[in-house]
Simulated assay, not measured.
Amino acid sequence: MASVTFTGNIGKSQGLKFSQDGKPRLSFSAAETARVKDQSGQYVDGGTTWFNVTLFGYLAEATDAQIAAQGGKGKVIVTGRMSTREYEHNGEKRESLDVVADSVGFVPRNQPAQSQQQPSQQPAQGGWGGQPANAGGWGSGPANEPAF
Rank of each mutant, 00 (worst) to 15 (best):
A124M: 11
L26T: 12
E61D: 09
K37I: 14
N9T: 09
E86A: 11
R81W: 11
A143D: 13
G80D: 01
N134L: 01
T54R: 04
P146Y: 07
Q117D: 06
D38N: 15
F106C: 00
E32H: 14
S83F: 03
A65Y: 02
V44R: 13
P108V: 01
Q42D: 14
E86S: 06
E32V: 11
E145C: 04
V4S: 15
L97K: 08
S3N: 09
F28P: 12
Q131P: 10
D98L: 02
I67R: 05
A60Q: 06
T5V: 07
G130F: 05
Q114G: 07
V99W: 02
M82T: 04
G80M: 00
S115T: 14
A101Q: 11
T7H: 12
Q42H: 15
A135N: 02
T79H: 04
F56L: 04
V4Q: 10
Q14V: 01
G127H: 02
K93S: 08
K37P: 13
Q66S: 12
T33N: 03
M82Q: 07
G71D: 04
D45L: 08
F28C: 04
N90Q: 13
P119H: 15
R109F: 10
D21M: 10
K12R: 12
V53E: 08
Q42G: 09
T48H: 05
I10Y: 00
G105T: 10
Q111I: 03
G8Y: 04
L97T: 04
S27M: 05
G139L: 01
S29H: 05
A2R: 14
Q111Y: 15
T48M: 01
R35W: 02
P123G: 02
G126F: 10
T84W: 00
S83E: 06
V107T: 02
A113G: 12
Q116V: 15
G139F: 00
A34Q: 15
G136N: 08
P119D: 05
